[in-house]
Design a protein around this nucleic acid. Structure first.
Length: 577
DNA sequence: AGAGGTCGCGCC
DNA sequence: AGGGCGCGACCTCT
């Protein structure tokens, strides 16, 4: 089966109470509605599974985060979807279809949808009720929205790229729901051992663990401040200054520069206190269940198109606790990250053959040194990051002339994105995600500076705003395109994993005892982790590499840029990288 | 008491 | 240095 199938509440239910039915509405590529089937909501999962067994359509629904978890709970997975909420957000802003009816309309119910599904209520949720999820009181007309989106893409500049972006974004939403469902394997015993080793045994009645408490005591006596609470920044700052130390904050970097016996225990305290509050026992009780860490991923949660998380801090999982991420017995983790992704993406976007040549090396920075552009790997790294982030001072800025001579096209691309941002214009990624326009405060500041009565401080403020925005748009186009590559990489990998011949797998994708199918368990901007039966680990590693090459071709066709990966087959995540 | 802001720091 | 985040703790305001 191919084509689009809209999963929707029947029109008769709009405004009415939950009728307990769901409509499957076939739709042509041009938005023309076809056959329509209304069925009992209790039978939706079954109906979806039937069609997936037959190849599956592209399922269209309002919001993957709201609809897919119930299917996953029923043991059903889908190959493809079109997420109307996420695609709406992209198309509303994209300058590739700025003249479309969708982009020109006033903000409506689809703009008001929150990126996170409501927490489940005690009422057993039907698979498809007609809640007012937008909170605006307006009904969401999914068919009409789909037609507007299809029309916007059809009339867009570069519709193929935009289509790829919408498909990748939607697949990302599927992966996010699946990863939450499957969870990241978490070994509580290993986590305990690691915490106890660092801060001491867990106190029975709250309070600081022994080692942390001892450190606090040493800090108090070394600073001769018996009442000091080292968790309080203002308290600590006052104590340091009273001890005659010249600090303006309690930042790690500033403390490290001091000459005082308190430095070592204080830095140790800060490191451990941070670890304990961010990923200690309390964190585990909230986020780890049945040996699985299940963060809430938020696809498209960052303006650049990167994912965010709304809880659990999954995108900041510190290196120190990754030893607790452990494959099940008989399973392995295949962890892969893209090396120097952003410079490679920049080389391809700019069509910069010289930089692409440097990217032919597994270590791009070594390639930059080899080309003679700079002398050392450190310089290459600072220069490249400076170009992408917009360094204005320091080593990065000093190296820009050399970098510009070696890679005029690549540097030209980010410079022109920065200039556009400074003028108040937007930036757009390779596939068509456009940055937000400047806000009211920015516009007001720039306006004020250009008036006759502008004071010098108005002018300085506006200058700063312009430069800040230039750095934002400069970074946006590269970071956003890197996020697109990563989504395509992950989508390709997901498909390859689904197609991998797996002896003994039940095909539903559910994590049943009999299911031995490799599945994605983690994604972090330019890094993925797959949990796999160990006998398939090598096949998975191959799939990861093939998917990276596929993502490169999807975005940049035959342009000769390589996306090098570091791939590791490990038992625990800390063994990777 | 709760909301909201700031700091400091973890990740890419 | 420079871009993008989330989060916990503290602190202030209401």
């Amino acid at each position: 089966m191919t084509g689009l199938v809209l999963v929707d509440a029947p029109a008769t239910a709009v405004g009415a109470r939950d009728t307990g039915t769901v409509a499957l509405q076939h739709v042509d590529d041009d938005g023309t509605p076809g056959a329509r089937l209304v069925l009992d909501a209790a039978h939706l999962a079954e109906a979806v599974a039937e069609r997936e067994a037959d190849g599956g359509p592209r399922w269209v629904w309002d919001d993957t985060a709201r609809r897919y978890p119930a299917l996953l709970a029923a043991g059903v997975r889908v190959r493809r979807c079109h997420d109307l909420r996420l695609c709406h957000a992209i198309l509303r802003r994209s300058d590739r279809c700025a003249d479309s009816a969708l982009a020109r309309a006033e903000p409506g119910a689809w703009d008001a949808l929150s990126p996170v599904a409501e927490p489940p209520t005690d009422r057993p949720a039907s698979l498809f009720d007609e809640a007012d999820v937008s909170g605006t009181g307006a009904a969401l007309d999914a068919l009409e929205e789909l037609r507007l989106q299809l029309a916007a893409v059809a009339g867009a500049r570069d519709p193929a790229r935009l289509r790829l972006l919408l498909a990748a974004e939607s697949t990302g939403a599927l992966v996010a729901a699946e990863m939450h469902h499957d969870g990241l394997p978490w070994d509580a015993d290993a986590h305990d051992a690691l915490l106890e080793d660092l801060v001491g045994p867990r106190p029975r009645t709250g309070g600081r663990p022994a080692r942390l408490d001892a450190l606090a005591g040493r800090i108090r006596s070394l600073l001769e401040q018996p009442g000091l609470n080292p968790d309080s920044q203002s308290d600590l700052l006052r104590a340091l200054r009273r001890a005659g130390l010249d600090v303006t904050s309690t930042r790690r970097h500033e403390i490290a520069a001091l000459q005082h016996d308190v430095v070592e225990p204080l830095l140790e305290y800060k490191r451990l206190a941070r670890l304990l509050s961010a990923n200690g026992w309390a964190w585990r009780e909230q986020w780890v269940r049945d040996g699985r860490f299940r963060p809430d991923y938020v696809p498209g949660g960052v303006v650049t198109g990167r994912w965010a998380t709304s809880g659990g801090g999954a995108l900041q999982l510190p290196a120190a606790v990754r030893a607790a991420v452990r494959a099940d017995p008989g399973w392995r983790l295949v962890a892969a990250d893209a090396a120097q992704l952003e410079p490679r993406v920049l080389a391809a976007m700019a069509g910069d053959l010289a930089m692409a040549a440097a990217a032919r090396r597994a270590d791009l920075y070594a390639g930059v040194v080899e080309s003679g552009a700079v002398q050392t790997r450190e310089q290459a790294k600072y220069a490249m990051l400076g170009a992408i982030y917009g360094a204005t001072t320091g080593a990065g800025a000093a190296l820009m002339p050399q970098l510009t001579r070696a890679y005029p096209r690549a540097v030209g691309l980010v410079e022109s994105a920065a200039r556009a941002g400074e003028r108040g214009e937007v930036g757009t990624t390779w596939l068509g995600r456009t940055s937000p326009p400047p806000g009211a405060r920015w516009l007001a500041s720039v306006e004020a500076a250009s008036s006759q009565e502008a004071r010098p401080e108005d002018v300085r403020l506006a200058q700063r705003h312009r430069r800040d925005r230039g750095r934002f748009t400069r970074n946006f186009v590269v970071q956003g395109t890197a996020a697109e590559w990563a989504l395509c990489w992950m989508a390709a990998l997901r498909r390859r994993l689904l197609e991998l011949p797996v002896p003994g797998a039940d095909g539903s994708g559910g994590r049943t005892a009999r299911n031995r199918r490799p599945h994605l368990v983690f994604f972090l901007h330019d890094e993925v982790v797959v949990h796999t039966p160990q006998e398939l680990a090598d096949d998975v590693a191959t799939a990861v590499r093939d998917s990276a090459a596929e993502a490169g071709r999807l975005l940049f066709g035959s342009f000769p840029v390589e996306f090098a990966l570091d791939v590791a087959v490990v038992d625990t995540y800390d063994q990777a990288g």
